[in-house]
């Protein structure tokens, strides 16, 4: 794509996203096909700054594909992604990260062979140096309750600690949007509550917008501002947790009577 002229991108972006000034993310007719399968079907999605949105839907609804399109891990077949007023559709992943998009994968994908401090250095050295680096390291370790584990090799951490480390690493880049794919899968009840508090705090206090893919509806209820239901690659419902939860159509697709 020839969108190399920044002024053109900006003008275009204002046209597309100008209506909501605090809108941080917008997709237009975003589409991804794998062979004959349409995993993402002309999705128009919008997210406000600092909003915590949960993405739910039955297996195969295209949730992870949608997230991977946002990070740049997958290239869309058609459509556009606007972030912070700019067209980022053709940017590689690492440039999207520079613009503030941060992602936590489904499985804790920390660097298992490295210590906690070494893990944290990898994102942090991108944004801080010298004394600021030391201060930030300490702050993040304290905030995510990992100070005592500073020199522990990451593969020896508990599952909950690994999840916290990964969220801490994502936060080290001071993102404006964080994407999380099933952050509490396989965690205990206590650990789940801990992560829920952490995510609420990141949204409320740090003003980071979040998109969280989650199956556990109780967890969704405890954190989400709004919920988007995906089904067969397109947006099925969108609204408050209560509205979505009580919608008989949503229940129906979850029970699979639709198919």
């Amino acid at each position: 794509m020839g969108a190399s002229d920044p002024t053109v991108m900006t003008t275009q972006a204002v046209d597309e996203t100008g209506e909501g000034s605090s809108r941080i993310l917008q997709t237009r007719n975003l589409r991804k096909e794998f062979g004959g399968l349409t995993a993402t079907d002309d999705v128009d999605f919008a997210l406000e700054e600092g909003e915590l949105r949960c993405l739910i839907g039955p297996n195969g609804a295209g949730k992870s594909t949608f997230l991977n399109l946002l990070t740049g891990q997958l290239e869309p077949t058609a459509g556009k992604i606007y972030y912070d007023g700019h067209d980022v559709t053709d940017l590689p992943s690492y440039e999207r990260v520079d613009r503030g998009i941060s992602m936590k994968f489904q499985v804790p994908s920390i660097y298992e062979g490295l210590t906690v401090a070494q893990n944290l250095r990898i994102p942090l050295q991108q944004v801080a140096d010298g004394d600021a680096f030391e201060t930030r390291t300490r702050e993040i370790l304290e905030r995510f309750d990992l100070l005592a584990e500073r020199d522990t090799v990451a593969s020896n951490l508990s599952h909950g600690q690994q999840q916290r480390l990964e969220i801490g690493m994502a936060m080290a880049l001071e993102p404006t949007l964080m994407l999380l794919d099933e952050p509490v899968a396989g965690l205990s009840v206590e650990e789940t509550a801990e992560i829920a508090d952490l995510l609420r705090e990141i949204s409320d206090d740090d003003g980071v917008a979040l998109i969280v893919i989650e199956h556990d509806i109780d967890f969704v209820e405890s954190i989400a501002d709004r919920v988007t239901v995906l089904d067969q690659g397109s947006i099925f419902r969108e609204g408050s947790v209560e509205a979505v939860k009580s919608d008989p159509e949503v229940k129906r697709i979850y029970l699979g009577e639709d198919h």
Binding site: S93, Y94, F105, S109, Y111, Q118, R121, Q125, Q126, L173
Partner: peptide, 23 residues
């Protein structure tokens, strides 16, 4: 810094890209 980026790339390339590195 460059050495850390190399080690991170060795350990997990796609993850490292998601931390803003041009692996």
């Amino acid at each position: 810094h460059f050495g850390y980026a190399m080690v991170a790339t060795r350990e997990d390339e796609s993850r490292t890209e998601m931390f803003g590195y041009n692996t």
